[in-house]
Amino acid sequence: MFLLSKELFFPPVTYANEDGLLAVGGDLSVERLELAYKNGIFPWFNEGEPIIWYSPNPRMVLFPKDLKISKSMKQVIRKGAFKVTFNQNFSEVIANCKNVYRPDQGGTWITNEMQQAYIELHNKGIAKSVEVWLNNELVGGLYGIDLGTVFCGESMFSTVSNASKLAFIYLVQKLEKENYKLIDCQVYNNHLASLGADEISRDAFLKYLEN
């Protein structure tokens, strides 16, 4: 594990341990976060902990063409009860991702410091959001880092059934039209696997970032 200083630098991702833990320390400046994502690295830590940086191997990704939409979700889309917008209310999306109750988790990993850092990234045009509305109320959404041809998903939330899944589907469909290579989902989870995401090697993922 590498200890970072104030210098704008990350060690090679091959230094990461088997859990993907690469480095500790540094800061959450726009410049460092942008450098991190461009090199397949992201912060992940809890309130009260030092900043911890990860680069897992394998990497969970979704190629837009591989998106799977279930019959039930197709019905939800056809009904048209939800409205989906892009990059219209980033601060509310990240606030909901931070505060929404998650029964399978003990708390949030989005610290106050991290929340403010990603709002700064949004202000620079680097972090983007998807919003899902029902009766003019924000009921779901997601946010992530837009690298131009790769979108790095960070977190999603839902206060009604299917809202976060709908946000993800609309994002993937939008990015496919814009010829994005893939959506970075970081680490495996069953929810994203059901939507078509799969694991690739870190080396393969880094090649997509380089290209």
Rank of each mutant, 00 (worst) to 15 (best):
M1H: 06
L4F: 01
S5P: 01
K6L: 10
E7R: 01
E7N: 04
F10T: 04
F10C: 03
P11M: 11
P12L: 06
V13F: 01
Y15R: 04
A16Q: 03
E18C: 02
E18N: 10
E18S: 14
D19P: 00
G20S: 05
L21D: 02
L21H: 05
L21P: 00
L22E: 02
A23S: 13
G25W: 04
L28D: 02
V30I: 13
V30Y: 01
V30F: 00
V30G: 01
E34V: 00
F42K: 00
F45E: 01
F45I: 04
N46Q: 15
P50M: 12
I51L: 06
I51K: 05
Y54R: 08
S55I: 10
N57Q: 04
V61S: 10
L67C: 15
L67G: 10
I69K: 03
S70F: 05
S70P: 02
K71F: 08
S72I: 11
K74D: 15
K74A: 15
I77D: 08
R78A: 15
R78M: 13
G80F: 10
V84W: 03
T85S: 15
Q88V: 11
N89E: 03
N89G: 01
A95Y: 11
N96W: 02
N96R: 11
C97T: 09
R102Q: 12
R102W: 05
P103E: 11
P103F: 06
T108D: 11
I110P: 01
T111L: 00
N112H: 09
Q116H: 05
A117W: 00
I119G: 00
H122Q: 02
N123V: 00
K124Q: 13
G125D: 09
K128G: 09
K128P: 03
W133Q: 12
L134M: 06
N136L: 04
L138M: 14
V139M: 06
L142E: 10
Y143V: 09
G144R: 03
G144S: 12
L147T: 09
L147V: 14
V150I: 15
V150Y: 05
V150H: 04
C152N: 09
E154H: 07
S155L: 09
S155N: 14
M156S: 15
F157T: 08
S158I: 03
T159Y: 03
S161A: 15
S164R: 04
L166G: 02
L166I: 10
Q173L: 15
Q173P: 03
K174A: 09
L175N: 06
N179P: 02
L182C: 10
I183T: 08
Q186A: 09
Q186G: 12
Y188S: 10
N189H: 07
H191G: 11
A193F: 07
L195S: 07
D198N: 12
I200T: 08
S201R: 07
D203W: 09
F205H: 05
L206I: 13
N211A: 13
